[in-house]
Design a protein around this nucleic acid. Structure first.
Lengths: 108, 108
DNA sequence: CCAAAATATACACCGTCGTGTATATACACG
DNA sequence: CGTGTATATACACGACGGTGTATATTTTGG
C-alpha cells in the first residue's frame, strides 16, 4: 500500500499508462486498449498512480478523465540531481577531479 | 531476473547502497553496517546492481571494491527528459531552444 | 425510476522478490 | 599447506504485487 515514486515506476504497465497520459487527459476506457491489461487492472493502476501523486482525476459524465501531475517528476529530478556529478557529461572536468582525488586517497 | 533501472531503484535497501556508493568506492564489509541488512543481502543487492549496470567491482586482496557507474543515471535522466515540459517550470520556449542547441552541440 | 454504460472494488491465485541461515569459494599470511 | 577473513551462493520461507473474474457503484438518458 502506498508505493513510493520508484516503486510506482517499477511496473512496466504503469509506465505505459504514464507515457500515454503524457499526451494529455485520457478516460479509463481509452487506456484499456493500449495498456495491454484488463479494465480492472487499469483502474487499480490508476488508483496507485493517484495515491503517489502521479495523476489527478476529473469526472466527465460517467467517465473519469485522468491526467499527469508534475510533483513526482520533480521529486525524481531532485533525486537524480544528487548524482548529477556522476553522470552529466557537462560536469566532466569536475568529475575527473573527483576521480583523481579518489584514486589518490585509495593509494594510501 | 535482470531487473530494469526502475525496478532496481524500487528497493529502499538498494537505494541506500547507491547513496553510500555516491561518496566513492566501498568494500562490501563497509556497506553491511550501514545498509541495515545482512552480508548475504548486501552481496545479492550488489549483484543485482551490477547486472543493471549501476556498479562495477574491482578486487583488492580478499575484498571487492564497488563503485557507481553513470549509465543508468543517464538513462533515467533521458527518461525524465521526455516529461520535462510537464514538470520543469523554467522550461519556456526560450529554454527549449537553448536545450536543442546544446543537444546538437553535444552530438558532435 | 430503470436500463445501459463506465468505472471501481472484492476475491482468489500465482509468481517474484527480499530476507536470513548455512555453506561454499577465494585470497592473504603464517 | 592450513587457518582466518572476506565475499558469494544455495536454500527455504514469508510477504507482497499484478492479474483476471465477478460483482458493486455511479452516472446518464429515456
Amino acid at each position: 500500500m502506498q508505493l513510493d515514486t520508484f516503486q510506482v515506476l517499477a511496473d512496466p504497465t504503469r509506465r505505459r499508462i504514464v507515457e500515454i497520459l503524457a499526451s494529455g487527459e485520457h478516460a479509463v476506457g481509452d487506456l484499456i486498449d493500449r495498456a495491454g491489461v484488463h479494465q480492472s487492472g487499469v483502474s487499480r493502476h490508476l488508483r496507485i498512480l493517484g495515491d503517489a501523486g502521479f495523476v489527478t482525476m476529473r469526472p466527465d459524465g460517467t467517465r473519469r478523465l485522468y491526467s499527469l501531475r508534475p510533483e513526482p517528476f520533480r521529486e525524481l529530478a531532485g533525486w537524480l540531481d544528487r548524482y548529477r556529478a556522476l553522470w552529466d557529461a557537462r560536469l566532466d572536468r569536475f568529475a575527473a577531479a573527483v576521480e583523481r582525488r579518489e584514486r589518490r586517497r585509495n593509494r594510501q
